[in-house]
Amino acid sequence: MSAVKAGEEMTAGGEANETAVRYWDYLRDYRRHREELLAVVDSVLSSGRLILGKRVESLENKFSLYCGARFGVGVNSGTDALFLSLKALGIGEGDEVVTVANTAVPTVAAIRSTGATPVFVDVEPDTFLMDVRLLPQVLTSRTRCVLPVHLCGQPVDLAPLQEFAELEGVEILEDCAQAAGATYRGRRVGSFGSIGAFSFYPTKILGGYGDGGMAVTSCETLYRKLKRLRFYGMEGAYCSEEEGYNSRLDELQAALLDFRLGLLEEEVGRRRAIAAMYSEHLSGVGDLVLPAEGKEREHRFYLYTIRTSFRGELMAFLAEKGVETRVNYPTPIHLMPGYRFLGYREGSLPVTERLAGEILSLPMYHDLSDHEVWRVIEEIRCFFARDLPSITRPA
């Protein structure tokens, strides 16, 4: 009997039956690396040290070096990586932080947690990333920081952003949650701003088996402040040097992430191969607009997000065919009820709002099989079937 391909299951009668193509799933990866992962867990649990030990220190050193920064500070989430970074930069009441509205709520929640006010700027229509050219329009005397989000796995246009920040005397804090390892002009994100903030949430490009985050910086003063802030403001035992918080990356997650860091480039290579398959066979299909890779930017494809005016119909069609898709951030933050107090109205960010009605993210993770990718491609082409030439799936 021939082997059952990924994305198929056996029926009671013995024939193969196609199952859902999952939007994201870690279980195949876990089964493949199970023995290695359990050995990592056992080594930590047998060590006698569970909090702020050698595993955290090792990951901080390796990951900051990987990013091109001198220092890393492990914390308990990507949200805290942003929040503590803003605190380390001295951001607080009365300050304004410029960011985008087509991001996860934590980006803005972190700003609000400091007491500062988020100010939104529109995005580029092709990359969905902060339109740096618009920054002068939102600059005020209270602007202290620009917080670019490297959305979907691709860097913001960082050279003009750095020029703007230097000219205006504002800080740059990079939200790198979706773009670990992505490069701009050959240099990795997280090394351009004063601080780079990363999330290790399980779905991320470098994801753990729980929550976690890290802030990286090349400034020793900021590094020492971040270390104090994550541990009640302490440098020694039982004595707080300043008001701080409890936000520690634990030894277990650090050790698991250290293991996963060694697999990262291979896994990103697979993501890019999947993206290339999508792009080759969905180009020119219907009214689809495919992801654009900006000049001198490397896209790591945390998400493969298409645009179509038939999003609702396509999403429902794919769901019926067993293909899971997602709309990442269907409501821009400036239009959410929870942030109505900021005073934005519909039409304030026209590009952001238009994109929110058109974007659809396809299945994208390194363990997708070619068979599953082809299923996604074929079902989308079937939806837009009129006047499309047929394609032949490779054997």
Results as ranks from 00 to 15, higher is better:
243 E>H: 06
282 L>F: 01
191 S>T: 03
159 A>L: 14
177 A>L: 03
193 G>F: 09
165 A>H: 02
242 E>R: 07
240 S>G: 02
249 L>N: 01
223 Y>F: 15
263 L>W: 04
240 S>E: 09
194 S>K: 15
161 L>A: 01
219 C>Q: 06
185 R>W: 07
221 T>Y: 05
234 M>S: 09
199 S>H: 06
177 A>I: 00
211 D>R: 13
234 M>K: 12
233 G>C: 03
191 S>D: 05
261 L>M: 07
251 E>N: 09
205 I>E: 01
222 L>T: 11
204 K>W: 01
233 G>N: 04
239 C>Q: 14
207 G>Y: 13
272 R>S: 02
283 S>P: 01
272 R>W: 02
255 A>L: 11
194 S>Y: 03
195 I>D: 09
260 R>A: 14
227 K>C: 15
271 R>S: 07
196 G>D: 04
273 A>F: 04
180 A>Y: 03
176 C>Q: 07
183 T>Y: 01
232 Y>N: 11
184 Y>N: 04
163 E>N: 11
231 F>P: 01
233 G>E: 04
165 A>T: 05
275 A>L: 09
287 D>F: 06
245 Y>P: 03
261 L>Y: 05
271 R>C: 03
243 E>W: 07
199 S>C: 08
181 G>C: 06
163 E>P: 00
283 S>Q: 11
156 V>W: 02
250 D>S: 13
203 T>H: 02
238 Y>A: 10
198 F>Y: 11
235 E>K: 13
202 P>L: 11
178 Q>I: 01
160 P>N: 10
234 M>W: 05
203 T>Q: 09
281 H>Y: 15
276 A>N: 00
239 C>D: 07
233 G>Q: 03
198 F>R: 08
203 T>I: 06
159 A>S: 12
221 T>F: 04
258 D>V: 02
218 S>A: 15
182 A>M: 08
162 Q>S: 07
280 E>W: 07
191 S>F: 00
